[in-house]
């Protein structure tokens, strides 16, 4: 489990942006988590509460959206959302390795007090 490290990096990014903007405190951090990112969102949420202590994000709300895996079929170019770990095209049956989304682990935006 490496969620603490990841959340620390996310909070660092947030604090850096907030400081640059001259904000007093961060009240919300929003993340985007791909379902193939290898991260467990609930563990991230739990780690967040510990990591923000004694930073300008202390007490901030943690929000995230899950980005589902989306693929493109190499043969018929259909875009689809696989249901299992096998990314089989529902149109022609070919297996895709081309990911359109699903690996994201991003800080989207923050809400700050000026």
């Amino acid at each position: 489990m490496h969620e603490v490290g990841l959340v620390s990096s996310a909070v660092d990014i947030a604090v850096e942006s907030a400081t640059k903007a001259g904000a007093l405190a961060i009240t919300r951090i929003r993340m985007r988590i791909g379902s193939l990112s290898g991260v467990v969102p609930s563990a991230l949420e739990f780690a967040f509460e510990c990591v923000v202590r004694e930073t300008m994000a202390e007490g901030a709300t943690f929000e995230y959206e899950i980005v589902p895996v989306r693929c493109r079929c190499p043969v018929c170019k259909t875009e689809f959302r696989p249901e299992t770990a096998v990314y089989r095209c529902p149109n022609c049956g070919e297996i895709s390795t081309e990911l359109i989304s699903g690996r994201e682990l991003q800080v989207v935006d923050i809400e700050v007090e000026q």
Binding site: S17, A21, V107, D109, E111, E113
Partner: peptide
């Protein structure tokens, strides 16, 4: 009420 503002970030956590 403190004035609140949204700052867009759009950065990868693993960028470093």
């Amino acid at each position: 009420q403190e004035p609140r503002k949204i700052i867009s970030i759009e950065r990868e956590v693993l960028e470093k």
